[in-house]
């Protein structure tokens, strides 16, 4: 099906770097993810105390979304759907929750951990911050799958379910993290095609 949607902007976060539209905007030499993501949060200059309550996956998604949506005016009519995907679902936090219940002698499940044992919670966090009363879907694939994401995003836009889609890959697993998120709409520099998404993801 021929469509004419475009990628307005894209952001990738990995290996201690945050990149916006190909430009390096944050880089720091640290050993751990928690140091890095806190630095990234501070570098993009947001004040949002709830950030520190989030799990690793949500923090990653939150910073990526902030980089792309931070400049969008906040109002309730902003129609930006979220379509995310990853490989590890919420497994990092799942493992933490399992640890709280492994021993019958020390059995103290934590609600603040358990609530993050669903991958879609990170989309809820972004929706709250940016007041997005919109569609959310979270898919799990073995690898980044531009083909399915492209088709699903086109369907949302063509059927006027949304004006824009915040789309991409947000994976956190152990100390391994990778975000590649892009904003699709009517206008933008890059064509919204499977090939172009794959190209931007791999550069």
């Amino acid at each position: 099906m021929k469509t004419n949607f475009h990628i307005e902007s894209y952001c990738s976060i990995k290996e201690n770097k945050v990149i916006l539209n190909g430009d390096l905007i944050v880089k720091i030499d640290v050993k751990t993810y928690s140091e890095f993501i806190k630095h990234a949060y501070k570098a993009i200059d947001i004040k949002y105390p709830k950030f520190f309550k989030m799990d690793n996956l949500s923090k990653l998604a939150f910073v990526a979304a902030e980089v792309l949506l931070g400049k969008e005016p906040t109002n309730e009519n902003k129609n930006i759907a979220i379509v995310f995907s990853n490989k590890a679902s919420s497994l990092d936090t799942d493992r933490m929750h399992q640890e709280t219940i492994n021993s019958p002698e020390y059995y103290y499940p934590s609600p603040a951990i358990f609530v993050y044992t669903l991958p879609n919670i990170c989309m809820g966090e972004i929706s709250i911050k940016h007041k997005l009363l919109t569609e959310n879907s979270f898919f799990i694939f073995n690898h980044f799958n531009a083909y399915y994401l492209h088709a699903y995003t086109n369907s949302l836009l063509q059927n006027k379910k949304t004006e824009k889609v915040l789309c991409g890959w947000i994976n956190y697993d152990g100390e391994d993290y990778e975000a590649f998120v892009y904003l699709v709409s009517q206008k933008g520099y890059w064509q919204h095609t499977t090939e172009e998404i794959t190209r931007l993801y791999t550069i």
Binding site: P49, K53, Y108, P109, S110, P111, A112, V115
Partner: peptide, 17 residues
């Protein structure tokens, strides 16, 4: 302090633990 409902549940766990 602006705590919310999840914090309240977490405090219940803290009392127990």
């Amino acid at each position: 302090l602006g705590l919310d409902s999840i914090d309240a549940l977490e405090l219940i766990v803290m009392l127990d633990k």
